[in-house]
Simulated scan of single mutants.
Amino acid sequence: MREISAEIQSWPISGAFTISRGAKTEARVVVARVSENGLTGQGECVPYARYGENEKDVLAAIKGQQQAIADGMSREELQRAMPRGAARNALDCALWDLEAKLACKPAWELASLTAPRALTTAYTLSLAAPDDMREAAAKAAKRPILKLKLGQGGDEDVARVEAVRAGAPNAALIVDANEGWKPEDVLPLAREFARLGVSLIEQPLPAKDDEVLRGIESPVPLCADESAHGLEGMRRLVGLYDFVNVKLDKTGGLTEALAVIRCAKLRKLRVMVGCMVATSLAMAPAMLVAQQADYVDLDGPLLLAKDREPALRYEGSLVYPPERELWG
């Protein structure tokens, strides 16, 4: 009989992680485990207050599936039994991991994917004053892709990007406003950022206000994050955004994330695969989705003071697929 266990864990962040909505110094994650015949599959999620989630409710939601899991609930049944979000992500990934162990096959093979390869991830610079961001960029200048957290738009965000470009003149730049701008800011800032060689602008407006993006001709491609969750609503993104940021905590796990990737490509949307600040256990299943992405942003463990063991292998910005001991 299958059994569930789950726990809340705290992982210190190196320094602080700051975006337009606030700062944090620790990553609070929930780890789910599903065991059968002496084998255990694991999955990690990050409850996100932006979506009305907290650790206590996510933990309860996972444990609330004990009877269904004991009765043999499949991953497909899990999609119908739980709403997308962090709790379903942890359970879905734990079931993938368990199935791989029981079948003595890697998860990528169970998913009918090709063997994963090492990928280049973006590296995130927290929101800060321009001079501080220039210094952070200079320290990370050898990384090929930097992702900048920006603020409320206007001249100060331009100054931040100019500072980062000065500190890392050769890096590709992605900017992430985390819903911080006003509609009238989008085109002027996009023109400034095109001048500075920015490759992508992520979620410039609050999700509730993004319809004003329809049909605008931004000189820098726009990427949906808070506006994009799972399969529902994908059609609406066409004409608003050029990219969609796929995160397992939003899709509710690897199962729907793979479906979202297929849907995005059918709708001619390009893909970024992103993450919350979390450990290698959360990144491992996302590495399977990231094989099909145009941009990869799986740097969560690089922002921590320490990672779990075993961990993903990072060599600079190159991240390698998980070993079986970690996940899948």
Rank of each mutant, 00 (worst) to 15 (best):
E179I: 03
E179P: 10
G180L: 00
W181Y: 14
W181N: 08
K182T: 15
P183T: 12
P183N: 10
P183Y: 06
D185A: 09
D185F: 05
L187S: 12
R191K: 15
R191P: 04
R191M: 09
F193L: 11
F193N: 02
R195W: 00
L196P: 11
V198K: 09
S199P: 00
S199W: 07
L200S: 06
I201P: 09
I201N: 02
E202C: 05
Q203K: 14
Q203D: 12
Q203R: 12
L205M: 07
K208W: 11
D210C: 09
E211R: 08
E211S: 13
E211W: 01
V212K: 12
V212G: 06
L213S: 02
R214V: 01
R214A: 15
I216H: 03
I216Y: 06
E217D: 15
E217N: 15
S218A: 13
V220D: 12
V220I: 11
P221W: 01
P221L: 11
A224M: 08
A224S: 10
A224P: 02
D225Q: 04
D225K: 03
D225T: 01
E226W: 09
E226F: 06
A228K: 05
A228R: 03
A228V: 04
G230W: 01
L231D: 09
E232Y: 03
G233M: 12
M234F: 07
M234T: 01
R235N: 14
R235A: 15
V238N: 08
G239K: 04
G239P: 05
Y241F: 15
Y241W: 04
D242F: 01
D242W: 02
N245T: 00
V246Q: 05
V246P: 02
K247N: 10
T251L: 00
G252Q: 05
G253F: 00
G253Y: 00
L254D: 07
L254G: 07
T255V: 07
E256W: 04
E256I: 08
E256R: 13
A259I: 00
V260W: 08
V260F: 09
V260I: 11
V260N: 10
R262T: 14
K265I: 04
R267S: 01
K268F: 05
R270S: 15
V271W: 09
M272D: 01
M272S: 01
M272N: 10
C275H: 02
C275T: 13
V277N: 00
A278D: 13
A278C: 15
A278G: 04
A278S: 15
T279M: 01
T279A: 07
T279Y: 04
S280K: 11
L281P: 12
L281H: 05
A282I: 12
A282Q: 11
A282K: 00
M283W: 07
A286I: 01
L288Y: 14
V289P: 07
Q292T: 10
Q292A: 15
Q292M: 14
A293C: 06
A293N: 13
D297A: 09
D297Q: 03
L298R: 06
L298A: 09
D299Y: 00
D299V: 04
D299N: 06
G300F: 03
G300D: 05
P301G: 09
